[in-house]
Write a protein that binds this DNA or RNA. Structure first.
Lengths: 189, 189
DNA sequence: TTTCTCCGGAACATCAGTGTTCCATTTCTC
DNA sequence: GAGAAATGGAACACTGATGTTCCGGAGAAA
């Protein structure tokens, strides 16, 4: 079994495992490898072939989360327009992450699986665009970048909770989230 | 062993177990009864004397959370002043809950331990004061009560995260939280 | 001082999950 | 079509946690 990045069928199997793991663990952090295998439609032995131990799978999930977040950040074109406009686009793209978002938010221990002590690329990009917002007057300079980032993440979570707990359509929750975020970060008001 | 509400030393022991359980499980949801016992300074057998099975302890934690939240809601005097003023006081009291807040937020499965399907008293009070805010013009009527409640909870969590992750003093985080909540819910702006 | 209650540590049985090995089957590639 | 690679289910050993029982000690109460 070579350790090169898998291709074709092997890549699809690996991806299916990671997607299933995200969903299952988001709903039930203590879910077993058997639970994940069943959700992925593979055998438990197969899980072990791709990820020798449970900790290896968790680490891979962590990396997968960061990868998905980085891709969403790129799709948001963070360097275009004002800081506030860019932040709203990032917010929209992150909202579409669904399980990734919920997982990253609810599972604090995910930070122990990958080295999240060091900032991710998305963190840096987010920090810069908030500072750009301070400079162009679209984001309240009294709000530190770290707080604005934390705020956005938590409002995204609130939006998803609003959808799940209160049976509200996704787009309504996103609209409320964007509307409220806009007001929360606005300068001069 | 009678099942009457414990008093004196027994009540203190029970309380110590619940407080330790909250802290330990907030940081590590899969923590064992041994972990909790160690943190509470009691023997594991003692845990079993107060809570026959792990599920009994979890249920007691759930009730304890609700109790703490209800007390914090009462302390906030929700019927005084405008809706927005009352909401800010509730926010401040909830912030002081610390571990209770973090636990309730990060552990979705806590909702499975007590019957959270039916609204708690605090939920109803919160809903009423947000509607009062709509009526007295201090809370944006475009924001549904359920969304405002969800928003407040998530911003409280963001504030605590800001303190933990970014080494910011508690009072600074609370100030940012209240400042941002005020802007987010304001009508006409 | 005696009795009673509570407690904690040790020991034990049980169980669920993990990691590993094996082998037959299926799928994929040439 | 053949061979290689991948897969899945079964079986097994191991581990950690839980629930239970027991007993001696400490502290409180009578």
């Amino acid at each position: 079994m070579d350790t090169a990045a898998p291709t074709g069928a092997r890549a699809r199997t690996r991806r299916a495992i990671l997607d299933a793991a995200l969903s299952v663990l988001a709903a039930k952090p203590a879910a077993s490898l058997s639970d994940i295998a069943a959700a992925a439609g593979v055998g438990r032995t197969t899980i072990h072939r791709y990820f020798p131990e449970r900790s290896d799978l968790l680490a891979a999930i962590g990396s997968y989360l960061l990868e998905r977040i980085d891709l969403a950040t790129a799709r948001a074109r963070p360097d275009d327009g004002t800081g506030a406009e860019a932040l709203e686009r990032v917010c929209q793209e992150y909202f579409e992450l669904g399980d990734v978002l919920l997982f990253a938010f609810e599972n604090n221990q995910a930070t122990e699986w990958v080295d999240w002590e060091s900032e991710s690329e998305s963190d840096r990009i987010l920090g810069r665009l908030i500072q750009r917002g301070h400079a162009d007057g679209t984001i309240d300079p009294r709000l530190p970048p770290a707080w604005v980032a934390e705020l956005m993440w938590s409002m995204l979570y609130a939006a998803w909770q609003h959808t799940r707990q209160n049976q509200v359509p996704k787009h309504t929750s996103l609209s409320l989230c964007l509307h409220t975020l806009r007001k929360a970060i606005a300068a001069g008001c």
